[in-house]
Design a protein around this nucleic acid. Structure first.
Lengths: 209, 209, 209, 209
DNA sequence: TATGAATGAGTATTCATTCAT
DNA sequence: CATGAATGAATACTCATTCAT
């Protein structure tokens, strides 16, 4: 109880920020296992022991960073939940809001992507599960509203619809963050808004009443 | 570096297979950077020097393995290119064939997934580009056929359509390989066939004439 | 170094006790070199700097603890010096009193045992010498009395007799504190009293007139 | 199976000896936990990785050294088991043979002493148990012979007698190896033979018929 | 051609100690 | 007078790569 988490929060906020920024960058560049605390402290110009004082160990540092990020991840969705408008315009806004989040926190999103298929991140199951459930809950609510208002074509399987929306959102964001991934597939670079609009149109045709 | 690759191919085929299988497993389990040649040779019971004789260095070993895999990746698509049937049934068959490929080569696909967002794989850009282009070419041809036969609704942007198909296929496969990824989103476990059918139906509504 | 020891003794006695108990436990568990001031202060919930204020450094802490213990070690012997009774019953009482001391201060005795053959304890020579000399003096006095009263068989070398008594006492105590040490040698577990009686009988035969 | 124990035994014998000698010295000087592989390899002038190649880890190195030592420990006793002569002269020979062993392997004996009261040696229970049981078996056989031939006074408890002999032997050896331990108790330095003779005499009086 | 011994820089983590607040 | 942040050297251990046999 004595030494660990408390000590970091007693630091001047500016120093806290420097440490977290540098560490986040390291994890974004190298994932968890290959991230090097040596490199972090060298760049920061602080003693190696300090990091362990602050966070206990490497996993503690990662968990500190990513648990804050998980909270942030959920943020943009909440903002839209209460939005007015028809189903598909709310979907489009979700795309845009999530894209804006990624633009604001590119390092965090790179960590998330690395975590997706790399098993050795601490608390990976918990973190990914939280994010998934938040999205599922949010998208499920949107779908329920749309079913009630008759905006979706009848006979749609609710679970499959949520899964499809999630799929589209996820891939939209991946593509936004790592455009090279679609080099050769979608060669024409588009703005965030253009792409969001196009995918919404597709969804409207596929799902709309 | 002179007779490098040659020496490996002079080995009895059975030994070649053992080496490649064990190395593939290591990369699938740990990615590139964290894969350990020490562990590989320990499991194989061969000398460490041999691996370096065969492949030059760690990157050479990986490239040997994954360049063969890239060729395999393209295989299932070619098989369907000449298939008869309407557009959407050919799409559904693509889903099924790709899913079958993953079931047959789970380790290769795990490596591919890790490579997707992890920058430090050797020749990553080249490998991913090859796979992407193969898919784009294949899907593009399918779309062109469908446009010609009027199976797609008019006014569809070809590139965006290809992108959407690719998105659906990719996510379908990820979900097939790592089902836990959708725990909480698509809780009802489905067979490969059921899921392929459902996604095809969705595409038919979204894209069909 | 000025007011060093003083500051500790100004503490409320209860806090002094907590600090010393926890530190003694750490030294008993880990010896000197591997004892960790980090762990001690973590368990105590006090600042690390305080320990250094109180005792100067790690050696100072150990010396404070063990110099008090040395005084205690000598205690039980003094109590018997003035006892009446024949030589061998006084010996037996010494065994019992020393065993009782160990039961009352098990941590101190564990430190003593570790110090016996581990050279890197601070002031080791001094501490061990003090204890040895106290025992030698005490046992020597007993032997002198017995020689005078004719209780010992004639011709016994005084020094060797003292050495033998010391040997028996020491090993008796070690065995009492670490019974597993004699697993397989003396498998029948005995009470302190039984063992003291048996060893006294042996000594009576070996040394008695 | 590939890398570990085999590699060390392939080394030229001279190098094996240098490594073991230096490592044994380190353990004798510092015990297990405080022994430093850094120091060992620095003195040897070899790479740190080599030691881990040879023995796997620090515990493996220690176990290699001490398991050989345990075998050696038992050696001198076996040599005497078949000796002729009366009980007490065989005991005296045991003292002398064990003392000679310690003189020949002082480092090993110092490790043994440190292990006696320091819990964190690898395989400690096993090693100490083996040594104890060997001694108990040997001394028990001597006692049984003496009981059969009537050399011991009647009514002696066999177990207690073995325990006493073990006690005397152990302490005799400790005193021989670490004479300073008895500074102030037995100030007159004696030869090994003198001391063995004196202790045997004592035992003869205490135990003899 | 295969072997496996040698290397040395790299990893996370712990530690006693200092000193500004 | 107490605090606890900072330090940097120390620890065991792993790794890809080289090269003499």
């Amino acid at each position: 109880m004595a030494g660990t988490r408390q000590t970091f929060e007693n630091l001047p906020e500016e120093k806290q920020d420097r440490v977290l920024t540098e560490a986040t960058r390291e994890f974004a560049d190298h994932g968890y296992q290959d991230a090097s605390i040596n490199r972090i402290v060298d760049r920061l110009g602080i003693a190696k022991g300090s990091v362990f004082k602050y966070f206990g160990n490497k996993a503690g540092l990662f968990e500190h960073i990513f648990s804050r990020a998980v909270a942030d991840f959920k943020g943009p969705l909440k903002a839209i939940r209460d939005t007015d408008g028809d189903f598909f315009s709310r979907i489009e806004q979700s795309f845009l809001a999530s894209g804006a989040f990624i633009d604001a926190h590119p390092l965090i999103y790179r960590i998330y992507l690395k975590m997706l298929f790399n098993e050795n991140f601490p608390l990976r199951e918990r973190f990914l599960g939280e994010i998934r459930r938040a999205h599922a809950k949010y998208l499920g609510a949107l779908v329920d509203d749309a079913v009630a208002s008759g905006e979706l074509r009848p006979g749609l399987d609710r679970e499959m619809t949520v899964f499809l929306l999630h799929t589209m959102l996820d891939r939209f964001l991946q593509n936004h963050a790592v455009p090279s991934q679609d080099a050769g597939i979608d060669p024409a670079p588009r703005t965030l808004a253009e792409r969001a609009r196009a995918m919404t149109e597709f969804l409207r045709h596929g799902l709309g009443a």
